[in-house]
């Protein structure tokens, strides 16, 4: 039989691979162009130096921050807060979303409240975060949790409610029940959507951490920017901004690896 040749049936990945060098060169070109623009603007003094630091000043500041060890310390502090807050909301939010997705009464009871909190900016919690948790890691973790928990619950819940009924029929034919049904049918059926939700809410978390650390913390990337502003050190602020952007992208790339797991590919390919 002709259709029995394994490789002929795999979805073509070759065109993407052939495009590999362009996929690297094109964005690199844009970055270089932006950098040149920045350099030209500051070289020809189109903006005064105090409102736009030059690339050279930023490079110097980078060296300074790293040799002083402050930057590394701030990176670790911020990553730690985001990871703890994010893991906490995933561990509590995903199971709650799974449960709500399967219980109509639960949905009816909780969805309005969950929606209310989802639309409440996490930054609105800052006064309470400081009042309840004082200064340090805790208020920032609390804010990350408040920022990511509600969207994660709601995304998981709606993923569960869109599982095709046929999967549950098949599951019944083969006697999947209780926790086995949850772990071997419901969870894998929503996993691709949950991974997407994780990436989205991680994005929220990383945005929120900078604001959260501007108050209630004495280290971290957000605090670094706040300090730079207070000292009128915009070169240092730009260093922090670059680090925040790069780290955010790197973490997202890491989470994107989850969507390459073979047992979730189906969710992205059809």
């Amino acid at each position: 039989m002709k259709e029995n040749q394994p490789n002929s049936l795999l979805k073509a990945v070759a065109p993407q691979k052939r495009n590999g060098s362009a996929a690297l060169l094109l964005p690199a070109g844009v970055v270089v162009a932006l950098f040149l623009l920045w350099w030209a603007v500051s070289y020809f003094n189109l903006f005064p130096a105090y409102s736009l630091p030059s690339p050279l000043a930023v490079a110097k500041s980078f060296k300074e921050e790293f040799t002083a060890g402050r930057m590394v310390n701030d990176i670790i502090a911020s990553l730690w807060r985001v990871v703890v807050g994010f893991v906490l909301s995933a561990v509590l939010g995903i199971p709650l979303g799974l449960w709500l997705g399967q219980h109509l009464a639960g949905r009816q009871a909780f969805v309005p409240v969950l929606n209310f909190f989802r639309f409440l900016s996490p930054l609105a919690w800052i006064p309470f975060a400081i009042l309840w948790f004082h200064i340090g890691d805790k208020p920032a973790i609390f804010l990350i949790f408040m920022a990511t928990f509600f969207p994660l619950v709601l995304a998981t819940m709606s993923a569960v409610s869109t599982i095709p009924k046929i999967y549950f029929r098949v599951a019944k034919d083969y006697h999947y029940k209780g926790s086995e049904l949850l772990n071997k049918v419901t969870l894998p059926a929503v996993l691709p959507q949950v991974i997407t939700a994780l990436r989205v809410s991680y994005g929220i978390a990383w945005v929120v951490i900078v604001a959260a650390e501007m108050v209630g913390c004495q280290d971290g990337l957000g605090y670094g920017i706040w300090e730079a502003r207070n000292g009128l050190r915009l070169d240092s602020a730009v260093c922090y901004m670059i680090i925040i952007g790069v780290l955010g992208m790197a973490m997202d790339r890491l989470l994107a690896q989850l969507s390459k797991l073979p047992n979730v590919r189906w969710g992205y390919e059809r």
Binding site: P164, I166, Y167, R169, V170, D173, Y174, V185, P188, A189, L191, N263, V264, W266, G267
Partner: peptide, 15 residues
């Protein structure tokens, strides 16, 4: 033991 073959989508896509 009764089992059903469906028109489509009867296989679990994650397996």
């Amino acid at each position: 033991v009764i089992r059903t073959v469906y028109q489509y989508d009867g296989l679990f896509p994650w397996l």
